[in-house]
């Protein structure tokens, strides 16, 4: 069966709420029913059929083509299946998702994978602020799963992160890992100011020595971490070309809060 694909006809005047286009909601619907689903976010009515050319059948494999930064909530609350996006994604991509896979060929907006609890999101280019952050109405950010960002991330990547792993290939903005509770953020291209602000138990791993270090992080010096080897093995199994090595400088913090978090700066 061929993937069920949605090709954006033209840039819409309003933002689109695509949260209904997930396998669990589409299962059992025929083409006509799918095309009549509302995706409007204003008082102006708008259906899937108005904005997208729909093709294919397999609801477990969704394909978005030509989407732009107004296509919000793609794969939100996803609970299985695979979504491939040939284009950009708007805000709340894969927010609160439980399982499944989302991959974006372009960039994504703010709150990618907000409060997600499982599954994987991979964005080839940049993402907006608060990737892996807190979804509306939630108290914690990402609670499990994996977010891989090929390009740069905005501010507050992994805000209130509780569990799970975020990898930023490019540069992250200010307050990376802000108020994180636990979990891991790997920052390969460095971060802006105040990284690890309010970090309780989480791990921030830096590919290079960060330019700005919070004064509330305390140096424990360099040592061996088998944990980094485990992480490297797993990332390579995911197809990432990455080398962490086993040695890192460990700084503990944020001492302004619990102080059981860490920054590992790879040697």
């Amino acid at each position: 069966m061929s993937a069920l694909s949605f090709e954006l006809k033209r840039r819409t005047e309003q933002r689109l709420d695509l949260s209904s286009l997930v396998p669990s909601r589409l299962d059992g619907l025929n083409r006509k029913q799918i095309e009549s689903l509302s995706i409007a976010t204003t008082r102006q009515a708008l259906t899937v059929g108005d904005a997208f050319k729909v093709k294919g059948k397999d609801v477990e494999q969704l394909h978005f083509v030509g989407t732009d930064d107004r296509c919000d909530k793609i794969g939100a609350k996803l609970s299985g299946g695979e979504i491939v996006i040939d284009g950009d994604a708007g805000l709340l991509l894969g927010a609160q998702m439980k399982s499944g896979k989302i991959s974006v060929d372009g960039s994504a907006g703010v709150s990618v994978g907000a409060s997600m609890s499982g599954g994987g999101i991979s964005v080839r280019r940049d993402v907006g602020d608060q990737a892996g952050g807190v979804a509306f109405g939630e108290t914690f950010g990402m609670k499990g799963g994996f977010i891989s960002i090929g390009g740069d991330a905005g501010a507050l990547v992994g805000e209130r992160l509780r569990r799970g792993l975020i990898v930023v290939g490019g540069k992250a903005g200010d307050y990376a890992g802000g108020r994180m509770v636990a979990g891991t953020i790997l920052l390969r291209g460095g971060a802006g100011r105040h990284a690890g602000y309010g970090n309780r138990r989480g791990s921030l791993i830096f590919g290079d020595k960060p330019r700005h270090l919070m004064p509330t992080y305390v140096d424990s010096g360099v040592m061996e971490f088998d944990y980094l080897r485990l992480l490297e093995t797993w990332l390579r199994e995911q197809g990432m070309r990455i080398r962490l090595g086993g040695r890192a400088r460990r700084l503990m913090g944020d001492m302004a809060v619990l102080g059981k978090g860490e920054m590992l700066i790879l040697e």
């Binding site: 792993l165 636990a182 791990s203 992480l231 797993w234 860490e262």
Partner: peptide, 11 residues
């Protein structure tokens, strides 16, 4: 002690 979950396995 610190707990880390990698690929669904806790260490």
């Amino acid at each position: 002690q610190m707990s880390k979950v990698i690929g669904g396995r806790r260490y």
